[in-house]
Amino acid sequence: MDDVRWLSAEEQEIWRAYLTASVAFSAHIDRQMRQDSGMPMAYYEILVRLSEAPHRRLRMSELADASLSSRSRLSHAVTALERNGWVERRPADGDRRGWVCSLTESGHAALAAAAPGHVTTVREHMFDVLTPEQLRSLREIGLAISAGLRTECEAARAEDDGQADPCDP
């Protein structure tokens, strides 16, 4: 353990401030989504990704990557979204192993109904409390952290052995 680079008191404070804000903000957004829309944030993110895709559909592997989810976790979420009638899953054309997930009109309507509450929550608890300079820094910080984790997260998603992916939000 002599080679461990322990955190200084200031680094420990920064880490805890980041962790507290990140966990509290994520929990608050998820709670707001469940209360206002009846869906967890993870489902909302899937619907958003599909709504932004050409023809409102993506291969399941592409949707997993776009939503930063393992394939197994995505499959469970898509099953729930199918039960709600918000998405449809079908075999990919010309590929017996691939599947495509499509956003239905009902899913688009659910997304449109959920979006105002979500955006309001994000605006009130992030954009309204930070200065423009802090927001630019937050973007740079987020991009740097994501870039530093990219290889590990891609490897974890590729393993997709049914266990929880430590890189899933």
Rank of each mutant, 00 (worst) to 15 (best):
D65N: 03
E82Y: 00
R150T: 01
S22P: 01
P169Y: 09
A155K: 14
D128K: 01
V4W: 05
A64Y: 01
R90Q: 12
V129R: 10
D128Q: 06
R123F: 00
S61P: 01
D160R: 04
A66E: 09
M1R: 13
G85C: 02
P169A: 14
H118Y: 12
V87Y: 07
Y18W: 07
G98K: 05
P91F: 11
V78W: 14
E152S: 12
L103A: 04
Q163V: 05
S26Y: 10
T121L: 00
Q32Y: 01
A155R: 14
R49I: 06
S137G: 15
R139S: 04
W86R: 07
H55C: 04
W15F: 13
R49C: 15
R71Q: 07
R56A: 14
D165K: 07
S8V: 01
R90A: 14
H28W: 03
D30P: 12
A112N: 05
Q134H: 08
L74C: 08
N84P: 00
S102G: 03
H118L: 13
D168H: 03
P54L: 09
M39T: 11
R157W: 07
G85Q: 07
R49S: 12
R56V: 02
D65M: 11
D160W: 04
R49L: 15
D30N: 15
S70E: 01
A110F: 01
C153F: 10
C153M: 12
H76Y: 11
I145F: 12
S51A: 15
M39W: 02
M126A: 07
S106E: 02
E45D: 12
A109E: 12
H55P: 04
A144Y: 06
D128H: 09
R96K: 10
S51I: 00
E133M: 12
D161W: 03
Y44C: 14
M1S: 15
A77F: 10
W15Q: 10
A92M: 08
I29D: 03
I14G: 05
E52H: 13
T79I: 04
A27N: 10
A144Q: 15
F127N: 05
L143S: 09
A110H: 06
V129S: 03
D65S: 08
P132V: 01
F127V: 03
A156G: 04
S69D: 04
L7V: 00
G85N: 02
D161F: 03
S61L: 05
D3S: 11
Q163K: 10
L81H: 02
H28F: 08
A113H: 03
S22Q: 06
A21R: 09
Y43Q: 14
T131G: 13
P54H: 02
T151V: 08
R59M: 06
A42I: 13
L7E: 10
R139H: 13
E10F: 06
L74D: 08
M60R: 15
C101M: 06
A164F: 05
R73L: 05
